[in-house]
Design a protein around this nucleic acid. Structure first.
Length: 106
DNA sequence: TGTGTGACAAGCC
DNA sequence: AGGCTTGCCACAC
């Protein structure tokens, strides 16, 4: 996040738009950020946010509705539970209830 | 400068 | 339905 023109800025902006108690998938965030199919970039960008709590990176999960984060999966699950998101012991999340389509706020 | 890898997604078998 | 393969971009060595 060195240049505002960098795709990372768009990713961060989208993640910040995710309402509390709601989660979003990498692909969804990527699409909203203007990077269709480039979900890997989202994961890579969020990887650098682990130190910065200015962005709710914990609200971003994979397409399977699970936390693939091997670096802070425990912390992410705790944060989601604090947000009101029901996270299973196997890091499974109900996308049908907590998935944010992005149409809540424009 | 070039090769390999990564918090993924979609397609195919 | 579930598992395997390919594509994509940016960054580390």
């Amino acid at each position: 996040m060195t240049d505002p023109e960098s795709p990372y800025a768009a990713i961060y902006a989208v993640v910040q738009r995710i309402p509390p108690g709601r989660v979003c998938t990498y692909g969804r965030v990527a699409a909203l950020a203007g990077l269709p199919g480039q979900a890997r970039l989202v994961g890579y960008a969020l990887h650098a946010l682990l130190r910065q709590s200015v962005v709710p990176w914990w609200r971003v999960i994979n397409r399977s509705g699970r936390i693939s984060n091997v670096y802070a999966a425990d912390e992410q699950r705790a944060r989601l539970l604090a947000e009101g998101v029901d996270v299973d012991e196997t890091y499974l999340i109900d996308l049908d209830r907590f998935l944010w389509a992005g149409d809540d706020v424009e």
